[in-house]
């Protein structure tokens, strides 16, 4: 069951933005207003999301639910960062170093774990999926580009080999083009569905 009001609002917003794109430069003012609304609403939604997250973990702590220590860490970190940001200001270099010194290693470590998981998945993909066109093409391309990434073939300085390497390195662009074309067509269809009330807003 779709609610009519959100559906109408969403469709009208899309039509206005689309019309403003074609009415240049008069449509720029309308587009600026609408996009500012979008940014403000998105910021408000981000604040709501942060508040919801904090309240959820506070409830976990209050109920003593399993893993509430992690919730406690989250709440303490949030309160500390918020307090320091309000007191010191977000542009203060010391504050920025403090935050950066925490976030940077954590996210880097997470990226390293992603590398391990991907490597494990690369090993298991043949056992799980068997020999198929997908797995074979994946394995061959991975081996080729890992070898190229090591730099050994390039250091040989063989002209013919360099041409081959150049051709091989250009192959991903073919796939990228197809990917981008698919993304563009998908976005267009999705936009039409949203404009005509077939997708998106208003769902219960």
């Amino acid at each position: 069951m779709k609610r009519p009001i959100p559906l109408i609002v969403g469709a009208l917003s899309g039509l206005i933005v689309l019309a403003a794109m074609f009415i240049v430069p008069q449509g720029g003012g309308i587009l600026a207003i609408v996009l500012n609304w979008v940014i403000i609403v998105a910021g408000a939604a981000l604040l709501v999301a942060i508040a919801s997250l904090v309240l959820t973990h506070v409830r976990f702590i209050a109920k003593g639910k399993k893993g509430f220590l992690l919730s406690l860490v989250l709440v303490i970190s949030f309160i500390t960062t918020l307090a320091l940001g309000l007191l010191l200001g977000v542009d203060r270099p010391s504050f920025l170093k403090f935050v950066g010194a925490i976030i940077r290693p954590i996210e880097t470590a997470l990226l390293g774990l992603v590398a391990l998981v991907m490597m494990s998945a690369a090993m298991k993909i043949f056992r799980e999926r068997g020999w198929s066109s997908l797995t074979v093409s994946f394995g061959v391309s991975a081996i080729i580009f890992l070898i190229l990434g090591l730099g050994f073939p390039q250091n040989l300085n063989i002209p013919v080999l360099n041409e081959v390497i150049r051709f091989v390195e250009g192959l991903p662009m073919i796939g990228a083009r197809g990917l981008l074309i698919g993304i563009g067509i998908g976005l267009l269809l999705m936009a039409f569905r949203v404009l005509f009330g077939m997708e998106g807003f208003g769902n219960d």
Binding site: A122, M123, R127, G139, I143
Partner: peptide
């Protein structure tokens, strides 16, 4: 190099 070895091991084991 290690990633390359692991990938080859996965293929060989299969």
């Amino acid at each position: 190099l290690l990633m390359l070895v692991m990938l080859l091991l996965g293929m060989i084991s299969k």
